[in-house]
Structures are given as structure tokens and as C-alpha cells.
Amino acid sequence: MDPLPERDRGLSVVSVSVRFGGIAALEGVDLVVDPGEIVGLVGPNGAGKTTLINCVGGQLVQSSGSVWLGGESLDGLPPFRRARRGVARTFQRIAVFPELTVREHLFIAARARRRGGARWSELVDRGRPDPDESAEIATTLELVGLADRADAAVSTLPLGACRLVELGRALIGRPTVVLADEPSSGLDARERATLATVLRTLPAQGIGVLLVEHDLPMVSLVCDRVVVLHVGRVIAQGAFQAVMADPAVRRAYLGQVA
């Protein structure tokens, strides 16, 4: 089929389906995240939200359909190549490196995501950020509010701080799109506020965000647009208030009551 015209801008998911054995986790999902746009991806548990994010990040290969970023197909690329092309993500179950410090997390991400790939000098260099990387690390630390804990090993940080580390690790290196998988779960009120602030700064830098979130007030606060997924299908999309008023959405969330 002809790819959609939007695909040459940000992230575009074109009729992606995922089947595990006989079960269809995603059925023909279309979704677009433009640069500078925050799209909320909501839906009840088991709707396929994380499955969709995994298809974009490359952790999972879709059964059919395709994923595009900035006009190029991501299909068939392993996760690390997608990361270098500008896909960044966080994880629902955090995937940090416990023994490394916050600063080292950001350094690794800044270095590894560099377009053009690895260099031979990385085998024998001193493993320290160059001036450009240092500046970017410092900015990111400020942004996610971890500057005072930059040199603590991540194993010593509480879960909320770990989620912010993951967010910072995703943001460094100017990705095209950030896939945030339930970044607010396990965060306290102050950390949620930080998270919302950080997310709101991204559109100005032209970064698109796909935000999977159960916290609906957070979604209504930061998202420009909401996509509702239910049993693997997109059942509604549009502005937050309009979508939440949709009878189909109310049915999906509340059962037959509404």
C-alpha cells in the first residue's frame, strides 16, 4: 500500500499487526506522531500499548505493517540502529544499569546514540565525555532534576529517580521521537511535576513524544492529542476531552455500564 504522506515528518505507524500464536495483540494500528507533538496512548490493561511501543523500538517484530521515522522505514532494523536513527524510549519495568552513576548513564547514551556508529578509538579512549557531550549531559541533568545526584550509583536511587534517569537517558542526543512507557508509575507528587515539566519542554525542541500513561490527569495536562487502544485496535483519537466523552471509550474503560 501507499505509505501515508505524514510519514516523511515524524513517526508513523502504518497498519501494524502483531500476533502471538493465535492471539492478535495489535490489529492494523495506524498512528502518527509529528515532530513537536505529544501524543497520549491510553487504553485498559492488555490493550497492546507496550506491544506497539516495542514494535517502534524494535524490541518486537510486527507480523505485518510497517514503521517509518522521518521518511525512512525502520522495518528490519535492530533496536540499536533505531536508537541511532532517533528512536528513544523508556521502559515500563525499568531497564537501568545499577552499578553505573547517573552521569555514566547519560554519557553512554550520548556516545552510543551518536549517528554514524561506533569508532575504533572507543576501544582505547579514557571513557570520558568530550566537551560537547559534557555540556549536553549537564543540561539534561538539570532538565530531569538529577544534577545533585549525578554521581550516585543508580542502584542507590529510589524507583522514581530511576524513571527520571531513564527519561534523561532517552532525551540525550536529541532523538526524533521519545516513547515513554508509563513514566509516572512509582513517582511521587514532586517527581510527577518534574516529569510533566520535562515533557512540556520537548515540543519546543521539535521532539515528538508517544506517552503511554494510566494517569489520565497527566495525559490531559501534557498531551496534544490522545489515541485510545482497546484489544489491539485504535477505537478513538483526537483531543482529550472529546475522546473521553466518546461512548466507545467509556465502554472500553468501564465495561457495559456507560
Binding site: 540499536f80 544499569f97 553512554i108
Partner: peptide, 19 residues
């Protein structure tokens, strides 16, 4: 550092671009 990251979490390491 890359190897430290891969040892701790292959999933996280690949997601930031480590081959």
C-alpha cells in the same frame, strides 16, 4: 562502559544505541 551496560541490562543498552 558499554559492556557494563550490556551486562546490567541488554534491553536498556540496546535502546540507547549500543551494538
Amino acid at each position: 562502559r558499554y559492556l557494563d551496560a550490556l551486562r546490567a541490562s541488554p534491553l536498556g543498552a540496546e535502546s540507547v544505541g549500543i551494538n
